[in-house]
Design a binder for these strands. Structure first.
Lengths: 228, 228
DNA sequence: TGGACAAGCTTACAACGTACATGTAGCCTA
DNA sequence: TAGGCTACATGTACGTTGTAAGCTTGTCCA
């Protein structure tokens, strides 16, 4: 058993930061962020929990690393497109990332220091606005407005009792049955005449708001009201 | 010590759900949601942790109760105003609530079942749109777009390394010093020429996006493109 | 051959949510 | 006035969490 370069009794592959992060992301995707514990992550990697600390300095570092990794999945705004289509594509890409990794949205506020992928992403977004003819001040406005909408939408989507889809209709149905019609008439109306209609899917609302914001930004840029 | 109606050796006031919730909210406001533990909450109320379970069924119930309580703080859209000013006022009120209780934003996605204050609030918002001439489908769009923006903005604000204000400028300063200019030119530009300018405050961005969304909604309502 | 060093393991601890059993104060009925 | 019911507070305990500290071991260079 003292073989120098033996085929590693069990072909045990070495741990490294990337493997730790990738596995952590998978666990969080599958079972939710609250099920991601150091022990479970270790187990998944065939290793004791404490061994992970050779590759991440603590759990916060792990979470920050995960955030930066999923930021790297977002499609950067392309230089080839005009600013509006470029931003539209990357916005949809952000949203896709957030539905692949729903835990990411709730984590980013705790992430004080952004990683390199995050910084690169933001830089490219800002650059797209600047090259699209936005002043610096208007770029700041645009960035704030657009990303607020995108992340806010993902947040809402997660919190809503009705997700759209088949089995969610049942949820809405029972919820509707328990709602006092005279106390919440408009909620009841919306549920009955809209949410419960065949084919309703809340996620379809995304592009409506996205275009609304993008069009609004274009108008604001052109009227140039906000150089202050 | 067997006095029947003695002035209660220590004037100990009885616990009740409202007092528990109010104290929990204060603790979360002061020290962040992660410092709110059952033991600390009990201590703050002069009571053992387990006593709390006579008034909340578990920690999740406590958190849900807190959410509904702060929802009750939001100014409902007034029937007197036209839809746009009414929604503008309530949007600002939501934002104010979220800066008083920053923890609330991160908690609402886990809150599966909304409380009465939450339901009433949503009902009034929907009603304001309906009475403002929005179709049912457009009301759904409007609700999704507007609230996504509001909650998303609060979320962004919390996560940003630069908050605006005096001491935050210093943070931005050092951050700027560590950023490689050639790698993140637009980030550097924004920081140097905008964020670090005297009087910059990210929170001022809120009304820009708010008006952008409200104006966009008005336009969408009038063109009535979305009855589908 | 030896010894340094990185990486994994073992043990341990404090803080958390909360189950369960026990105590007790105050009101209702007899 | 006595007895007992109910609501609420306590005490103790367990399993799970993140992680500090020290130990062991496999690998590589001198």
């Amino acid at each position: 058993m003292t073989a120098k370069r033996a085929p590693a009794t069990e072909a045990r592959l070495r741990l490294n930061r990337e493997r730790v992060l990738r596995t952590a992301i998978r666990l969080a995707d599958e079972g939710g962020i609250e099920r991601l514990t150091m022990r479970k992550l270790g187990e998944e990697l065939g290793v004791e929990a404490m061994s992970l600390y050779n590759h991440v300095s603590n759990k916060e570092d792990l979470l920050n690393g995960m955030i930066d990794a999923v930021f790297g999945e977002i499609e950067l705004p392309s230089h080839g497109d005009d600013w509006k289509t470029a931003m539209r594509k990357r916005s949809v890409s952000v949203r896709d990332m957030l539905s692949r990794h729903p835990w990411a949205n709730g984590l980013m506020d705790s992430g004080t220091n952004p990683g390199p992928a995050t910084l690169r992403h933001h830089d490219r977004v800002l650059g797209t606005f600047r090259n699209g003819g936005f002043s610096i001040a208007m770029t700041a406005h645009a960035f704030a407005a657009l990303d607020s909408y995108i992340y806010g939408f993902a947040r809402q989507e997660k919190g809503l009792p009705f997700d759209g889809g088949e089995q969610a209709a049942a949820t809405a149905q029972t919820m509707l049955a328990h709602l006092p019609v005279d106390e919440y008439p408009y909620l009841v109306e919306l549920m009955a005449k809209h949410v419960l209609q065949r084919g309703y899917d809340y996620s379809n609302e995304f592009t409506f708001g996205l275009d609304l914001v993008l069009d609004g930004l274009e108008r604001a840029r052109d009227s140039g009201q906000a150089d202050a």
